[in-house]
Design a protein around this nucleic acid. Structure first.
Lengths: 195, 195
DNA sequence: ACCTGAACACCGTTCAAGT
DNA sequence: ACCTGAACACCGTTCAAGT
């Protein structure tokens, strides 16, 4: 279970190009925080002080930029899963990671939607991030099914969809993340035999 | 529990205007089916043989057009709720309506997202459709909590969000509606004490 | 190898001119 | 009262010209 794509694989070698690349990622992170994952790419290029062409050279699609921006936190979520695989209670570990995953998918407005799309799109640059999340969830899920009370009829694909769904609803209800706190219990009761 | 807004309240009186109005709704229905609820309004106007200005005169926002298009099926969903309120098993009735509501919210690609947005937007023309759905769900939910096994800690707002979430995931997983069939059991087990 | 910005396509929305 | 279509704003994407 190692990161599928090292975050800086597509980081350019030439110094000026690398400078632009890094600034684009940094600026994008801010823009996504402020305006959501649909923030105009044009703005991001301008704020980073480069032409749009430069942005498109480094990141052919919005998803590529998104993938670069969330790379680190996906790795963190992955590390958290490794940690939780060694926790005593497999049910608790699964739910704990589920909460973390929902929080992650809610980092930016619109991120959950992008992840849902790219999960079913071979060509998306976000795909490997999604796969990583999927794989992390799968291990915790299987352990909770073997050693805990997780129902056998659900799988990691269901888990991924539930994560995206809860994050999506939460970002759209504008009640300050309260939706996730209400919906997660409903869902976890469904996932476990002794909710 | 009567329809909050009669569907043809904003239907114009003058014959030519009414003709345009009706054609726009009919064309929009087709366009939404084919291209999703985000189908270009320009196209719809063109296909209906009117200028964009005419479309905007009748339907100031996309939501107004959407509301007109789904009006009838919202009424049907409403009627179905009335029916199910008289069913023997309150739990079964709730779940049955839940399935119908998810199916409805999945009529067009992007409809679930529009409904989620307008539910929390006072000014949206879709708001009353959402309120209608919410109200219908509330009655079935309360009955299932009183006379069935529905857990008391969830409410109709949660129900509405779950409906939107499942419909949204389903339209985005592109596995032919299979996602709903997998996720609904997970959720209903969470809603009922004896899932 | 990389950058720039003009140019194009697309779509929502407004509005002056018309009937 | 209603209609039309040109016009504008906005944003994604491409590409010729440059370093």
């Amino acid at each position: 279970m190692k990161p599928v794509i090292p975050a800086d694989e597509q980081r350019p070698r030439r110094a000026d190009a690398r400078r632009n690349y890094d600034r684009l990622v940094a600026v994008a992170k801010t823009a996504f925080s402020e305006q959501g994952a649909d923030a105009p790419l044009d703005d991001i290029a301008k704020r980073a002080g480069v032409g749009q062409g430069t942005l498109y050279r480094h990141f052919p699609h919005r998803d590529a930029l998104l993938a670069a921006v969330i790379g680190e936190s996906i790795d963190a979520l992955h590390a958290r899963a490794e940690e939780l695989l060694r926790a005593d209670d497999p049910d608790w570990a699964l739910l704990e990671w589920l909460r973390a995953a929902v929080a992650h998918a809610g980092t930016y407005q619109g991120l959950a939607a992008s992840m849902m799309s790219s999960m079913y799109d071979e060509g998306s640059a976000l795909r490997s991030s999604c796969d990583q999340m999927h794989a992390a969830g799968a291990q915790l899920m299987e352990r909770a099914q073997r050693q805990g009370s997780a129902r056998p009829e659900f799988d990691a694909a269901d888990l991924f969809q539930l994560i995206a769904a809860v994050a999506w609803v939460t970002e759209r209800s504008a009640d300050g993340g309260q939706a996730a706190e209400r919906l997660l219990p409903a869902i976890t009761k469904g996932l476990l035999a002794d909710g």
